[in-house]
Design a protein around this nucleic acid. Structure first.
Length: 342
DNA sequence: CGGTAGTCCGTG
DNA sequence: CACGGACTACCG
């Protein structure tokens, strides 16, 4: 164990004790720490067993990591319009093990490669458009879980886009995301938990993913909350987000996590009542990522190709499509002209 | 936006 | 010769 992770773990667990102490018994803190001190001399004479840092902090997300499953337990963000807009892009970033996770407790890329499961961000890259560094940190495998590819690129992607869209209507959006391994019935009706593990590090493949969304008004006061548990499998456009809505309490019981100890969430409105909870539908979604492809085209050929997709999918070009196409085409023509002048 | 995979090429 | 990084092509 590194000194750094020891200190980090100690500080973090001290912090959580403090929170607990504030909301419960004022004597809890001194008593429990002196008990531990005493146990360290009687029972835990070889040291206090260490599950790693309780909390790990990055530029734009915070997470708690599971050293056994090699995935996060929860990942927290609090995003605004400023975070989700900017020049940062994923082009030159690669997934990599988190330098702050000990190698023997970490996944690596080979675990995911040809495993049949994709690398799904919990704090999405797109929530870090303001900072290339923050976006790079989101590609640490501590922020990644094995996710069905279609789910990742489809339903979950649309949920993430919805969260970013919320920043246009609310001051800030707090999001907790993570994996779940939920029980399912076997022949005799009994419940069992089973999940695959992938790669030499046996990264746990979750059966479900959860997302908790809290929105704030102009005064940064929390006003709405929505909690969702989504199966880790393909989910088509015929399914609405609200089908997967659950009470916060359900996510907390299943994760064992109290997400907002300082916030009485019973005072909050249902997010899906104050906002739509409507995800992008097929036509808009196709249109959206064709727009992204136009935007990221770096030569005339790929630009033309993306443009032709609009016709192939019978999508009427939006003004955005047209503007991006024209601007890019102009840029490429200038490049060609400059080259021929050399 | 969210991803995978094939190919080329340098390295130990 | 196997492996890993970089670059390209591709898909929903």
């Amino acid at each position: 164990m590194s000194l750094r992770s020891f200190l980090f773990g100690s500080v973090a667990s001290y912090a959580s004790v403090v929170v607990y102490y504030m909301v419960t018994d004022k004597k809890a803190l001194p008593e429990s720490s002196s008990k531990l001190e005493s146990a360290s001399k009687s029972i835990l004479t070889h040291g206090i067993p260490d599950r790693g840092p309780n909390i790990q902090v990055y530029d734009n997300h915070v997470l708690s990591y599971d050293q056994a499953k090699k995935t996060p337990i929860w990942v927290a963000e609090r995003i605004t319009r400023e975070h989700v807009n900017g020049p940062a892009d994923r082009k030159n970033i690669r997934f990599k093990p988190d330098p702050d996770v000990p190698t023997r407790f970490s996944a690596d890329n080979s675990d995911y490669l040809r495993s049949g499961w994709s690398r799904g961000h919990m704090s999405p890259a797109g929530d870090n458009k303001y900072s290339q560094e923050a976006m790079s940190q989101s590609f640490y495998l501590s922020n990644i879980v094995p996710q069905n590819l279609d789910n990742n690129a489809g339903f979950w992607n649309r949920l993430e886009i919805y969260c970013r869209d919320l920043t246009q209507r609310y001051n800030a959006v707090t999001i907790f995301s993570g994996p779940l391994s939920l029980p399912s019935p076997i022949e005799d009706g009994k419940l069992v938990v089973t999940y695959p593990v992938i790669g030499k590090n046996q990264v746990a493949v979750p059966t479900h993913l959860y997302k908790i969304i809290i929105v704030e008004d102009k005064n940064s006061k929390p006003i709405g909350i929505g909690s969702f548990i989504v199966p880790n499998k393909p989910i088509g456009f015929e399914h609405a987000l609200t089908e997967y809505q659950v009470p916060l309490d359900e996510v907390e019981r299943k994760t064992g996590v109290t997400f907002t100890p300082k916030l009485d969430t019973s005072g909050l409105r249902d997010l899906c009542e104050i906002d739509s909870c409507k995800l992008m539908q097929k036509g808009d979604f196709d249109s959206y990522f064709i727009g992204r492809r136009l935007k990221s085209a770096n030569n005339r050929q790929t630009l033309e190709k993306a443009w032709k997709e609009l016709d192939a999918k019978k999508i009427t070009p939006t003004q955005y499509h047209i503007d991006v196409y024209k601007q890019k085409m102009e840029e490429f023509k200038n490049n060609e002209r400059n080259k021929s002048e050399e």
